[in-house]
Amino acid sequence: MRKIFLMAGCLLMTALAKAQFNTITFKPAVFTAEDNVTFTIDVSGSDVAGESELYIWTWCNKEADPANYPGKDGITNTDWNSAPAIAKMTQKTGNIFEFSFTGTSMYGLDPGKLKHFQFLIKTKNGSKKTADSPKFPFDPIVFIPSAYRVFPGKVGVSDMINLYFHQDLATNSDEQRMTPKTVTVTLYDQSDAVIGQPKTWNLLSEGNKVWSYSFIPNFAWTIPNNTTVKRFTWHFDGTGVDANGKPVPVTGTTNEKTIDALK
């Protein structure tokens, strides 16, 4: 019983620690590593709430493929115990702070080498700090081939979304061998609840081991009023054969994409 309480406590603390990152807004909302971006965050409820001087500590590409996206600290990370002036955030009001930067300048990497970044907010001497932020992506500036390609790169709820399965780029042996048949798409709302029912469609062969399907979220689904479509997931499925040559179903990797409020 105590274990359950401990686990629940840990989960609650983690959720609270991450909560302030729900308040973050980026301007522009979409940015490449070459764009100057300003983010605003409300640190209420975090360990640094109530402080008037706050500093950023940031890094990029954590857990990304190091060959393509080397991990690196921002130029703000000089001394944990004495943050430099360039790391200082601007206090807008109370617990709301703002910081501006450009990815390439902050991390000293070419734009094609920057995938995502994270940060935490701290006091100058590092005695108080927030949890690590989630990973925030840079809009790609170079094309990265992928088995699961989506065209276009940014989509809204009324846009044609084209899903492609490039089987020759699959890294999963089951997906490499399967005969692709269908794609199953699930839509999620702002509360992460599934909208309607997942839909399964037959794939179209584009030739050269490429399969595709295209759909428009608000055309394929009836979106209830006051519902915002926030993301969708999809997986390509097909058939393979087992060791005895018997056909078996193969379920592909589930992928996810954000649906933006394009206007």
């Binding site: 809009d139 790609p140 500036i141 170079v142 094309f143 390609r149 065209f151 276009p152 790169g153 940014k154 846009d159 044609m160 084209n162 295209s214 428009i216 055309f219």
Partner: peptide, 23 residues
């Protein structure tokens, strides 16, 4: 015809597609 302006700007291989037959 649907075009990805970011893909055009940065010279990605997939820039635009004819979606007439998709709906």
């Amino acid at each position: 015809v649907q075009a990805d302006l970011n893909a055009i700007k940065y010279g990605f291989p997939y820039k635009e597609i004819d979606i007439t037959s998709k709906a």
